[in-house]
């Protein structure tokens, strides 16, 4: 039950290596605006084109980057991200390749937080300790594992935190007050609020409902809240960045990459929308 006296969660790991996420949200707060989080699939449509897009994201206005790790069976994703993963895998993308892309990105950008996002099996296969070490060495700040709920998270949080990486947890509309302490027990970096019950890139959420949900989360944690799923337009991005601390755009961006459109110009338009939306 929600009560005024409910214990507030504070982010656990704040080592120097993991400071990029906190620094970025602090800067956004100082600027008085919400942030733009952009998702791209590593290796989509191929390694070289993907690297160019990744490297161009900060200048186009992305505040935080989610770098997708392709998986053969992406159960929480809609058709757009599914297809992106298939394209990347077909083009030969591997987990090693994704970490190499991140390391190359870090040669030119040391400030933009990068969060690796994907499913558990490739990491399980790589080995969790080895993955945590290699992801940290490549320059990651955090990890989002879609199919790792708090019940199963301990096997990954230990290794990640030991290497200064955050496990970014997901909260959904179905996550009730009783579950929040379990979610927050493992959460670091920021909280990812899944704004709809559904898969990525499908329907869009209502701003008022999202704002209410974010308020409930804020009553429990000091972590910044990024809102995602179904955000397609600069207006929606602005609204969701206003409702939370940042808006996540994935499928709509990936869709433009698939169509060979100017993805970075689209990111610039989203960034413009988010920057003009004052909290």
């Amino acid at each position: 039950m929600e009560t005024a006296t409910a214990p507030r969660h504070r982010s656990a790991a704040t080592t120097p290596e993991t400071g990029r996420i906190q620094a970025r949200f602090a800067a956004l707060k100082a600027e008085g605006r919400g942030g733009l989080v952009t998702y791209v699939m590593a290796g989509d449509p191929d390694r070289e084109a993907s690297q160019a897009i990744l490297n161009g994201l900060p200048a186009a206005g992305a505040d935080i980057i989610e770098l997708g790790m392709p998986f053969s069976d992406p159960m929480a994703d809609g058709p757009t991200i599914q297809a992106a993963g298939q394209r990347a895998l077909k083009a030969g993308q591997t987990l090693r390749g994704t970490l190499e892309m991140l390391a190359r990105f870090r040669e030119t950008d040391t400030d933009t937080p990068v969060v690796l996002m994907g499913y558990y099996n490739p990491i399980h296969s790589w080995g969790v300790d080895r993955f945590a070490a290699d992801a940290a060495a490549a320059g990651a700040d955090g990890v989002i594992i879609v199919d790792l709920p708090p019940e199963e998270a301990p096997e990954l949080t230990g290794p990640l935190n030991a290497h200064g990486l955050h496990l970014i947890m997901l909260a959904a509309p179905t996550t009730d007050a009783a579950r929040m302490p379990a979610v927050l027990a493992h959460a670091g970096g920021f909280l990812y609020y899944v704004s709809i019950t559904g898969i990525t890139g499908t329907r869009s959420a209502d701003e008022t409902q999202v704002a209410e949900a974010v308020a409930r989360l804020r009553a429990r944690t000091d972590l910044p809240v990024a809102v995602g799923f179904g955000i397609r337009t600069p207006e929606q991005a602005a609204a969701m960045a206003r409702a939370g601390d940042a808006a996540v755009v994935g499928s709509a961006l990936v869709d433009r990459i698939a169509k060979g459109e100017d993805a970075l110009a689209y990111v610039a338009a989203l960034a413009e929308g988010v920057r003009t939306a004052r909290a």
Binding site: M75, D147, A172
Partner: peptide, 20 residues
């Protein structure tokens, strides 16, 4: 009680599904 048979089993699903 968490659905583990030794190291196997468990509940590796998206948070949206966990309450269900």
């Amino acid at each position: 009680e968490n659905g583990h048979f030794g190291i196997f089993g468990g509940r590796y699903v998206a948070e949206t599904l966990m309450p269900l």
